[in-house]
Design a protein around this nucleic acid. Structure first.
Lengths: 212, 212, 212, 212
DNA sequence: AATGAATGAGTATTCATTCAT
DNA sequence: GATGAATGAATACTCATTCAT
């Protein structure tokens, strides 16, 4: 009994130390990027000993990956709560898209600097991390593609190579996200930006769209 | 007189050494990325002395930047040869876009690995390099935006926040380029891919487009 | 009364923990040598806590020394049971020598790897351990010397600088032991090896010996 | 031409630096043993920069091995100059043995501390070094064995398992060397010690020998 | 101008030891 | 007495940079 109590307390202590390191690492990476800081910067920020870092993480790469994975899973969590009901016409499709984007914006807004880091620096941080991120983008593309395929099958979207179009949409989103996170659209209300993006995706450049 | 000749020879020798280092650096970066290799890898590849590197470049960053700038200027060179005639209707606009993309593909195809490096790793290499690249993307966006503004003004494109749409197009292009360079679309003919991309940009997802 | 019982139980527990650590250390040292493993390897092998080690031993050196001393004292134990009767002629001397060697072989065979460790690595492990081992060898030499002196005094051994000859015998024995433990004489029956060694010690290389 | 001169000078400089490191390492190892000192102790003793060490040797092990190999090859060099004429009778055999030992003593006396290090600490320094030393001992044993086989074949040595006896002789020699180098026989003239050893090897303990 | 040996500050990582529980 | 998380001093090794030739 006593042993169990101690074990639990030890585990709790260890968990807290790990958490401390993770949040410190978040602050450090967000402040200085991935490449510049070293483990001792993280250790100093966390206020723990050097060795403590290595008890919890293999190296800088691992703590960064852990951090990113947490963020990425939060992003997908947001989607998993989306109504599973597939849209039944073009307008519903458009609304669902706006809704999805709004959800993402919500999560990202809480972690602007981390999101920017994810987009800009993380893909070049390390081969393994690059794969994690590439995988994430592909998951988004797959999601978009499945919605698009559904829409095409039901006659409210233009037939196309959906895997190409889906990835294009991801590209648009990424570029928008990067510029927005960088403060380049500080003067445009989020909803306007978002609508503009969706309008372009649904109607393209041509005059004819949305009017038809 | 003799002095002048010697000076010229020296300058010629120096230029060749510099060129050797640059092409060696290109091979090394393309092979191992930006972060992994060090100056001595480049020096070894170039077959020159360690000190010679520092007579020609301040550090790894500078030689990488020089290399990228060369590639970027080649990209823009391709555009400068484009007919300055602005398109006068939607179809001409579309054709001009396809033409522009084809030109880019031509340059990039000759430097696939370098282009991938530019997209993936370079933005995270260094703050200054990041700015160079961001500038390049912005120049592309500006170009796209000016065409778009012209199209809108002349009534053959949908009115929109052109700065947002132009950047979205850059995002689409970047994503496509990255995946294509990575061999993800090895089974799709380049022209099909290109057309798909332009179709999406001009018509969007909706049924109505291009039909109108 | 109760306190006494508890105390006894604690002491018993402590003794068992110590024994566990010692035997774990034995396994670890035998497996990986002295220098490579660290306290945490021993602790892991013993299945006790890190702190427990330091309650029982000052450091790696001390547990190794304790281990060796146990082995060494087992070796001498074997001799203490030898008949105290000194040999009265050359043949008896020879028989006694063979008997002594057989006893040593018996103990060592049970701890081949530890014995090899003792011969090879232990003398370089640490100054203090080196002294322990040097002392052991000297004790063997003294023993041999006293037998030899006795034999010389009684006219059945050649007069000589007995301290030098005794140490030479120790050297012969050590080299034989090392090679045998290393499996180099796997094809020679132990008794043959032993006899060969004793023949050489008693008769030397020359033809004349043993014939006289 | 000029380039050749520079190249030669550079090589000469490099060679000197390497030599400086080797002799410094010799002093350090002889003073503090193999395990205690680290590369920076050697570097400090040599008066060169840290990096210079790593330009010349992979690690501490390698410089130690290089050092030992130099010493070992000096030892064998001494033998290679021995008269290749095999002894033709027992006395010549004995004289040749004494001569061989004297040659070894000569080399070892010039490097007492290094020799002691070789015997005591080196075999435990590292697996690879251990193999180098074991190989050296085996070469000595092979040499001794071939002489012995010759003597047996020609009827002036007792038939025996020569591989066992040869190794026993190596063992005797090692033990003597160790004690002598340690100053334990400071009061015995070298030649007396040597003769005693050879007497024992040729005649053994028994009375009968050398008298016959 | 080119060279390449030499440099040493900087960095990741380990491991013996402590101490609160 | 036993525990194991936490510690930080110690250490091996790298690599950008210099400078005598």
């Amino acid at each position: 009994m006593e042993t169990t109590v101690r074990r639990t307390r030890n585990e709790e202590r260890k968990r807290r130390t790990r958490e401390r390191l993770l949040s410190a690492a978040g602050r450090v990476f967000v402040r200085d990027g991935y490449h510049k800081p070293n483990t001792s910067d993280i250790v100093a920020e966390a206020g723990v000993g050097q060795g403590t870092f290595y008890r919890n993480f293999r190296d800088k790469r691992e703590i960064f990956e852990t951090l990113l994975e947490g963020f990425i899973s939060a992003l997908f969590q947001e989607f998993s709560q989306m109504s599973a009901e597939p849209p039944t016409d073009g307008d519903a499709y458009r609304e669902a898209s706006i809704d999805a984007l709004r959800r993402m914006v919500r999560v990202v807004r809480r972690n602007r600097r981390l999101a920017l880091l994810l987009i800009r620096e993380a893909p070049a941080a390390d081969d393994r991390i690059a794969r994690v991120i590439a995988g994430m983008y592909d998951r988004f593309a797959s999601l978009a593609q499945s919605y698009l395929d559904h829409a095409v099958a039901n006659g409210f979207a233009r037939p196309c190579r959906s895997e190409v179009v889906a990835q294009s949409i991801v590209g648009m989103g990424l570029r928008m996200a990067e510029l927005w996170l960088d403060g380049r659209y500080a003067d445009i209300p989020e909803d306007v930006l978002l609508t503009e993006l969706v309008d372009f995706a649904f109607s393209g450049l041509s005059l004819s769209s949305r009017e038809g």
